[in-house]
Computed example of a mutant assay.
Amino acid sequence: MKILLAPDKFKGSLTARQVCDAMTEGIRLAYPQANVIAFPMADGGEGTAEVLTLATGGEWITVPVLDPLGRSIEASYGISSDRQTAFIEMSQASGLRLLQRHDYNPLKANTFGTGQLILDAFKQGVSHLVLGIGGSATNDGGTGMAAALGWQFLNDQGKPLIPCGGNLTQISRILPPVQPVHLTIDVACDVTNPLVGPNGAAAIYGPQKGASVEDIAILDEGLRHLADLIADQFGVALAEIPGAGAAGGMGAGALFFLNASLKEGVNVVIEQTRFADHLPGADLVLTGEGKIDNQTLQGKLISGIACQTRRSGIPAIALCGTLEANPAEITTLGLTAAFSVLTHPQSLDEALDTAYQAVRQTTFSLIRLFYSNSN
């Protein structure tokens, strides 16, 4: 029996690697002869760079950068074992998680540190970059990142500006870098918001970054000004592109300054791990995440895995901590079944502490059942 494991993390309790280990132990107890192939997964959000670095046998690199407010920190990214692909999450250098709540300020925060990570990867000789843009503290349209890569943003007096959300309206001219960074870049982007307007970067995501109603108006005006300037100076229209508003306009910045492609995060991960190459001959796929609910239908990892297995006619079973999806939603996902690993009422702390054992036990039970029904 060939079994593929492709779970996401169980947030707050188990990494994707640990979920794979627990599943593997459960399978070995139930069917020792099984051929188990593990693919720790992610949906393009937090942890994706680490998962892809592991999947490609790569190494984790730590470098000094500037945080969203210009303070010196260290941030990390991964490089594949063949040294051709870098895996970067902007949250490592430009993330909200780097700030205390009283420091949240999207008017001043910028993405310069993310640009430093990209530049370091380029200097390492990579030709391809996978960039995750979730969890940002910024609303600068990617101008900070661009500045780290040599772009200049000048005011009406021809003087360089510090690129940040609050300064976007002051930009009068954009100068490209003398030595541009040439990379093929895929951006893991799971939102479809345009850059500006009531569904844009500032209006939708600004409040969680500390923006007041007044700040949102300033930020939205700045992003609109940036888009108009790019359209006038370079003939590129960005404002209404789906995903341009991701991560405070980093979606638009990646499209223009990096010439990147925006892709659904889970599809980027599936592609990079070459998961589909291992489907032929598989008898079962086990996937999972901390919670399965109606959001799981909206392009999260389990949805992507189920799409792959459905095409191949392979049964897929998902494990989770909290199961809120109803039978119709589970069927719509394309799953054969979904199970919660929680077997009795317990506190959140107890559930988190016993998650490994619960995944192992549930996997053991379902493999025994699956094996007996397939013989």
Rank of each mutant, 00 (worst) to 15 (best):
L4Y: 04
L4T: 01
L4A: 14
L5H: 09
A6S: 05
A6E: 13
A6K: 02
A6D: 10
P7F: 15
P7S: 01
D8Y: 14
D8F: 13
D8M: 14
D8A: 06
K9I: 03
K9T: 10
K9E: 05
F10H: 08
F10E: 03
K11D: 02
K11A: 12
K11R: 13
G12C: 11
G12L: 06
G12P: 01
G12S: 07
S13R: 07
S13Y: 11
S13A: 10
S13L: 13
S13I: 04
L14T: 12
L14E: 07
L14A: 09
T15A: 10
T15S: 15
T15E: 06
T15Q: 11
A16C: 03
A16E: 13
A16I: 12
A16V: 07
A16K: 09
R17F: 01
R17E: 14
R17Y: 02
Q18L: 11
Q18D: 07
Q18S: 10
V19L: 03
V19F: 15
V19A: 13
V19Y: 07
V19S: 11
C20I: 06
C20Y: 05
D21T: 05
A22L: 14
M23S: 04
M23W: 12
M23P: 00
M23V: 14
M23K: 03
T24H: 10
T24Y: 02
T24Q: 15
E25P: 00
E25G: 01
E25M: 06
E25T: 05
G26V: 04
G26E: 14
G26K: 01
G26T: 13
G26D: 03
I27S: 01
I27L: 07
I27W: 01
I27M: 03
I27D: 00
I27H: 01
I27R: 00
R28D: 00
R28A: 03
L29N: 09
L29F: 13
L29A: 11
A30E: 06
A30Y: 02
A30S: 15
Y31L: 04
Y31G: 01
Y31K: 09
Y31V: 03
Y31W: 09
Y31P: 02
P32Q: 11
Q33F: 01
Q33A: 10
A34H: 00
A34C: 08
A34D: 00
N35H: 09
N35F: 12
N35S: 10
N35K: 12
N35V: 03
N35Y: 05
V36Y: 04
V36M: 14
V36T: 12
V36N: 13
V36D: 08
I37V: 12
I37R: 09
I37C: 12
A38M: 13
A38L: 06
A38W: 11
F39M: 06
F39C: 14
F39K: 11
F39P: 10
F39W: 14
P40K: 09
P40F: 00
P40S: 08
M41Q: 05
M41W: 15
M41G: 15
A42G: 11
A42C: 13
A42T: 02
A42E: 04
A42H: 09
A42K: 04
A42R: 12
A42Y: 11
D43H: 13
D43T: 02
D43R: 02
D43Y: 11
D43A: 12
D43L: 13
G44V: 07
G44N: 09
G44C: 06
G44D: 06
E46I: 07
E46T: 12
E46Y: 08
E46F: 01
G47N: 06
G47Q: 04
